[in-house]
Design a protein around this nucleic acid. Structure first.
Lengths: 283, 283
DNA sequence: CGGCACCGGAAACAGCTGTTTCAAATGCAA
DNA sequence: TTGCATTTGAAACAGCTGTTTCCGGTGCCG
């Protein structure tokens, strides 16, 4: 059935039956298949040098009801995997795994896109030069906070995790000021007190690095550096893969700022481990 | 100057000045930055639930003359810095960030490649049907273990983390047998006792899901399912991004095996949260 | 030459898009 | 409360989009 094929295949299938002007449009479409959704019918006409009427007729002939249906079709193609034009075309079902992979990669791409303006370096510098660094992550964000602290602990001796058991966050913040830094993870499903926490940090003039998904944007104002990290996933759960990647970048960045100090520190830690024979030989 | 920044940065720069409804649109735009060119102003309005007037005003406020200019801007983004879905042809300077991205994506690809033979489903099934599930992660793997436990706790009531403070792992394993499962994270920099731990689990005939990087291959024999997950990174630290992705897949898979039960369980958790007013309103 | 089939653009037109205007709603201060 | 500023959507409107109709152009056959 025509109706089940994508537009590239439909064109391939009946290219010969098309009139010359229609072929010009068809060529243009095939050449821009991946961003077909970006153009409307008038633009297609203008860009391929034919009249709007011809475009309209072509769509009909390819089995679409009207140009709106083509638009819809093009978007669907965008969402599910890349639309390959040629007769080769799509391999079987894009498995659940492949779909998942696509999503993760998209998240990574988005993440890097937002970081391109230098805010990552700003955050790294803040951390590297801070007197004390307090890492906070509640609920789902706790494992992330923990991981960041582990990484940073190799670079700086003055990194704490909060809240420690039996302590309130207020106590953790006590004594901190403009020369310190709080790194706060605030991913989806925040506790009710989150806004107040941000406010409290702000009140004490402690520079805040806020790492969270888009839903925390409203708190971004209170932060010295706002690192937005996508966590959308095709599955039932959020995926913190991009967040882990961000943590790696952040820790690396903070370390890069004062390399010498760090190297010696890592060496020291490794030494301790080896002394205790805690480690397996790592290769 | 506003005029030289891309739309995402412009929004970030003055998000606070935007009115609530404008923020809704801004959120939507940020969430769909990569295919902004696909939507026209009316659709943006409809999809973010505001009037066309508001969208129009937002564009002005962001420094664009009209929606046509935004459209043009979006297309330029697509062509240049933009994340197009296709087979990644990275142009320009491969910045530190871009290099990092490449590495992470390679890790994800490798991960998915190893999972394609069905071992992921095997692991998920094991977990879904197990009597008790014990998740173990030491040292650097601890945050991962914690995260997996949090995810699984939504699907099954019988998931524990080990070792609990003040307990030895031996005690945690006590009473477990062939109908239970241990999920063990064993990423690089394992403790000296790791091999003994695997042996102990094996001795008790507890099915073992081992999640680790290639350096743990020597322990793979002792596992019912061996999930190898790459963590190599171009930076000084290992990156657990792929591991997080794997955890997501595993939790989802375990959930998929008995969907009904899980849905109700998550619903119940959400309900409790809402009752306690612990959550921010979730948009 | 006439008759015919097809092609394709110009133009008419109905419907949609995006901007601006206006008034209602809201919040805040006095 | 009143007065003022801000926010917002409804509605008006000008302009654009996409479909259809219409008509001139072209090629082919007899």
């Amino acid at each position: 059935m025509t109706d089940t094929m994508n537009i590239g295949q439909r064109i391939d299938g009946r290219y010969g039956e098309l009139s010359p002007q229609e072929q010009r449009v068809a060529d243009f479409i095939l050449d821009h298949l991946s961003d077909l959704a970006v153009y409307n019918a008038s633009e297609l006409a203008r860009l391929s040098g034919v009249s709007k009427a011809t475009v309209s007729r072509l769509f009909r002939r390819l089995g679409f009801q009207d140009s709106a249906e083509v638009r819809e079709h093009a978007r669907t193609l965008r969402r599910h995997g890349a639309p390959v034009g040629g007769p080769g075309a799509s391999a079987g079902t894009p498995s659940r795994l492949a779909t998942h992979l696509e999503g993760e990669q998209e998240n990574l791409r988005l993440l890097l896109h937002t970081l391109e303006d230098g805010r990552l370096d700003a955050a790294a510098r803040l951390i590297a030069h801070a007197g004390n660094v307090v890492v906070i992550g509640l609920r789902g964000s706790y494992p992330l906070a923990l991981h960041l602290r582990q990484q940073l602990a190799q670079a700086c001796a003055n990194v704490r995790l909060a809240p420690l058991p039996g302590q309130s966050i207020g106590e953790d913040l006590a004594g901190l000021g403009p020369h310190d830094v709080v790194v706060l993870f605030g991913f989806r499903r925040r506790t009710a007190g989150f806004g107040q926490l941000v406010a409290a940090i702000q009140r004490r003039r402690i520079p805040l690095v806020l790492i969270a998904d888009a839903s925390a944007r409203r708190h971004a104002d209170g932060a010295a550096v706002w690192l937005e990290c996508p966590i959308d996933s095709d599955s039932a759960f959020d995926s913190y893969a991009a967040a882990m990647s961000l943590i790696n970048l952040l820790a690396t960045g903070a370390m890069g700022v004062h390399v010498r100090e760090t190297r010696t520190r890592i060496a020291a830690i490794t030494q301790v481990y080896e002394d205790l024979e805690e480690l397996e030989v790592p290769w």
